[in-house]
Amino acid sequence: MQLELVEQCKLNDRMAQMKLYKQYCDGMFCVAMRFLKNADDAEDVLQESFIKAFQRIHQFKGEVTFGAWLKRIVVNGSIDFLKSKHQKTIELDEGYMHIANDESWDVDENIDINAVKRKIEELPEKYRYVVQLFLVEGYDHREISEILKISETASRTRLLRGKSYLKESLSELKYGTRS
């Protein structure tokens, strides 16, 4: 059914495009909102993403689901939008950070999910994108490296540093300390 709709879209069938749009617009809006935090910006990115998807529909080969293919377009559009706005970032002096290869993402049970989300938003951009793509969107390092145009090693390093920074921030919440 879905591949049939995609094939109809490749023939420039407006009704099929509208069906795909209605099927995916809410979910893709949520993806954009997780990055942009502003409904107007998310709506703009969503519209641009659908336009881009329909313009490039011939590139869709069915190796992944249409939703996964479209999600990549929305994620890239969201990141490009943020980069174009030159978001203010906090650069860490990486030389002073101790990085441990810790696979655990456990946080204190007294810290709620909204606090974690806020702390992810406070991460420096280069760490925030990797943490968000890995934790929230569920991409692996190969996919993150393609999306952000960085090496897989850089993706892993940024994830570890982002996680370290995030855990430090969350421990400040737990103990009520601020530096």
Rank of each mutant, 00 (worst) to 15 (best):
A39H: 10
E94P: 06
K52N: 08
V45F: 10
V45A: 01
N76E: 05
F81K: 14
K83I: 04
I57W: 05
G67S: 11
S49N: 03
A68P: 08
A68F: 14
K71Q: 05
H86N: 14
I51V: 14
I79E: 07
A53S: 15
S49Q: 03
L70E: 00
H86K: 14
I73N: 02
F54C: 06
F60Q: 04
G77T: 08
A42P: 00
I79N: 03
H86F: 07
F54P: 04
T65V: 10
E91S: 14
N76T: 12
F50L: 08
V74Q: 02
D93L: 08
Q47E: 10
N38Y: 04
L82W: 07
K52S: 12
D93K: 14
I73E: 02
A53H: 02
S78L: 01
H86L: 12
Q59S: 07
I99T: 15
E43M: 10
H86A: 12
W69N: 00
L70V: 02
Y96W: 11
E94L: 09
I73K: 03
M97Q: 07
G62E: 09
L70G: 01
I73R: 00
H58W: 06
V75Q: 02
V74H: 02
D80R: 11
S49R: 04
D41M: 06
V64P: 03
F66S: 07
E63A: 12
E94K: 15
N76C: 10
I79K: 10
L46M: 08
H98C: 09
A68Q: 15
K71N: 04
Q87W: 10
S49Y: 00
M97D: 01
Q55D: 15
E91G: 10
I57F: 06
G77R: 06
V45I: 13
G62D: 12
G67D: 14
F50E: 00
M97L: 09
I57Y: 02
K83Q: 15
E43S: 14
A68K: 13
A68V: 11
T89S: 13
S78K: 11
A39V: 13
S49P: 03
A68S: 14
I90E: 01
R72L: 06
E48L: 14
I57S: 00
I79P: 05
L70W: 00
G67A: 15
M97S: 10
F54L: 09
V75L: 06
E91D: 12
N38W: 04
I73W: 05
R56L: 10
Q47S: 03
N38T: 13
K88M: 11
E91T: 11
R56I: 02
A53T: 09
D41P: 07
F50G: 00
T65M: 11
A53W: 00
E91M: 09
V64M: 09
L92E: 08
D41S: 05
R72Q: 11
E94C: 05
D44S: 06
V64Y: 03
I73Y: 02
S49W: 00
A39Q: 06
I73L: 07
V75P: 01
R56V: 00
H86C: 14
A39R: 14
E43Q: 09
G77Y: 01
K52A: 04
A68L: 12
K85P: 03
I99M: 11
S78P: 01
G95P: 01
Y96N: 15
H86R: 11
E94R: 11
D93I: 08
V64G: 08
